[in-house]
């Protein structure tokens, strides 16, 4: 085992030339972990606050909004962050379902699918907030 330190180790992310498919793969895990922790806690807080009555619901709303009902900075950061994470995870997840069938592994098509998921998530997030803002 004397030569152990000089033996090649398993190649990891840093040895590859970065492409959109790698970014999307990493983002899928980050967005999933983020929604599973921050997103799920906020969803349950929202439901529990609504079930608890007007007072607890006001406490919940006050964290994310100004007195006039408009979103404050926390509301925007959390809101845009979670919707962007949701749409990225959703688009990337649908891509994964296609990849599961064995389709889309050709270099060009794989790259296109990864790029598409990034574009879809940004466009969907922008559309969501535009529609919400207009109403």
């Amino acid at each position: 085992m004397a030569s152990r330190s000089t033996r090649p180790i398993s190649p990891h992310l840093q040895v590859y030339k970065w492409g959109p498919h790698m970014l999307v793969s990493v983002l899928h895990r980050i967005t999933g972990s983020g929604m599973a922790t921050v997103g799920s806690v906020l969803l349950v807080w929202w439901l529990a606050a609504l079930a608890g009555g007007a007072e607890s619901y006001a406490t919940f709303r006050d964290v994310f909004t100004y007195a006039n009902g408009r979103l404050n900075i926390i509301g925007y950061v959390i809101g845009i962050g979670l919707t962007l994470a949701l749409f990225q995870h959703m688009a990337s997840g649908v891509r994964h379902l296609f990849l599961d069938t064995g389709a889309g592994y050709e270099l060009k098509r794989n790259k296109m699918g990864a790029m598409a998921s990034l574009i879809i998530s940004v466009v969907a997030t922008a559309a969501f907030w535009l529609i919400l803002g207009i109403k």
Binding site: V44, A48, A51
Partner: peptide
Amino acid sequence: GLGATALFAIAKIAFG
């Protein structure tokens, strides 16, 4: 724990 809380909250509102 979180899931049970969520389901209870939904039921409480729906049956309230």
